[in-house]
Write a protein that binds this DNA or RNA. Sequence first.
DNA 1: CGGTCCTTTGACACAGGTCAAGTAATGTGG
DNA 2: CCACATTACTTGACCTGTGTCAAAGGACCG
Lengths: 250, 250
Amino acid sequence: MSSMIGKSRLHSPHPVDPCDTCRVRDISACALLDSGERDRLTSIMQTTMLPAHRLIFTEGEPARHVFTVTDGVVKIYKLLADGRRQITGFLFPGDFLGLIHSESYAYTAETVTEVRLCQFPRARLESLFDELPNLELQLLDMASHELVAAQDQMVLLGRKSARERVASFLLMLSMAARRQGNPGNPVFIPIPRADIADYLGLTVETVSRIMTRFGLQRLIQVIDDRHVHLVDPATLCRIAIGTWNRTGSL
Amino acid sequence: MSSMIGKSRLHSPHPVDPCDTCRVRDISACALLDSGERDRLTSIMQTTMLPAHRLIFTEGEPARHVFTVTDGVVKIYKLLADGRRQITGFLFPGDFLGLIHSESYAYTAETVTEVRLCQFPRARLESLFDELPNLELQLLDMASHELVAAQDQMVLLGRKSARERVASFLLMLSMAARRQGNPGNPVFIPIPRADIADYLGLTVETVSRIMTRFGLQRLIQVIDDRHVHLVDPATLCRIAIGTWNRTGSL
DNA sequence: CGGTCCTTTGACACAGGTCAAGTAATGTGG
DNA sequence: CCACATTACTTGACCTGTGTCAAAGGACCG
């Protein structure tokens, strides 16, 4: 059965305070837009800093803004009535948030670390569609990439073993770091075990046990809770994709 | 005029069945397009009939076409190296297939029943983007609905018990039937157990056992392999959403 | 110091997987 | 029409990977 770990702890109910906001720069990762078009975009956006463990918006809330993450890590999740939680994704700098074709958000978003966000009022963003036709294309592009990621996650959740899930997760983090220009190998894990568990469909205990086992098997070296050196990334990768069954004596 | 996200359905003058909003609709029936625009679309499309259990395209294959299902059921899935399979979705009439912003398909698509498809050459579809600006918006709409569905499926796969998954599945089928104007209650299950299992992240045996248990508990009445009467849909629904823990003596 | 939170570890339980057998429906060839 | 595969589904007995529960160590903090 599923876990119902620590839901209350995670809900610090402080929505975005507009007073925190101040206008800054952003590129918003739109390769399709030229500089004039980007200026048009930046003109309607607002930058916000949020501390860790802060709600950005909740499932069902009217969707008034769309965001991009410019710094830090955000998690998005859905809850079942009894508190079971599934984290459907982590967002890193450059990722888009709240792109939902409906009046209300379909999930809850919360900061994991301290986060810098760019906020676009949805109404004004949509009014730019006529003006910036490439914008829609860009959004479509993003949505279909998210869809691909979602399908990979369904494979992970439906068909992978716990070891395979954890291996996939470590490699995912490593790649995310590299994409941001950070070193991918001593992997920095800005995400607590409870969130990893709820992302992988496991319990904290299982995640913890697998990490120690990977350590004993010399696949990784656990530096501390938040830092892991990938000693044998090739094997980890084969574990992650489901080629590699030897559990070893451990 | 509706250049606003979500306008097509949510701001429509007619009240809509909430079930309707859960699914992507046929692109050529798209509300955003006028009849001339629809003609433009139909001019580049081709209709095909396929028998059951036929590959439509495979993961990794160059994505040359985009499809809509007009009749029958299609499954899309991904495989792990050792043959484990995760079905990431079933497509019913009106659903869109192959909407991928990349050179190759991200998953395999196969007919479950006999199927009628409309085929659009991707290159020609994309060249219509300038001509029919609403088309992109419609595609964005579809993609974001699929994304919502994908997130629900992640909750199911990551956090729901076997009973909860099977209950969710039966209700999903019932709603899909109703959306197509068919009776939703004696549910017709055009999908073999093996496919149900690979969709729910279970085994055939477990699916089978749960179905009989639901029968013994008078929640459903199994007419035959492919027909089930939902005797107590309310309880099934509470099971599906995770409110209802009594396993009963069975 | 004594709390609180996060993580790890151990002992144990159980949901669901595995393996194997049995039944029913359908098709196939003679 | 009958043997006889073949395929799909169910059922039972058993096993195992993860979940559950409980405890303990560290880090941080007022």
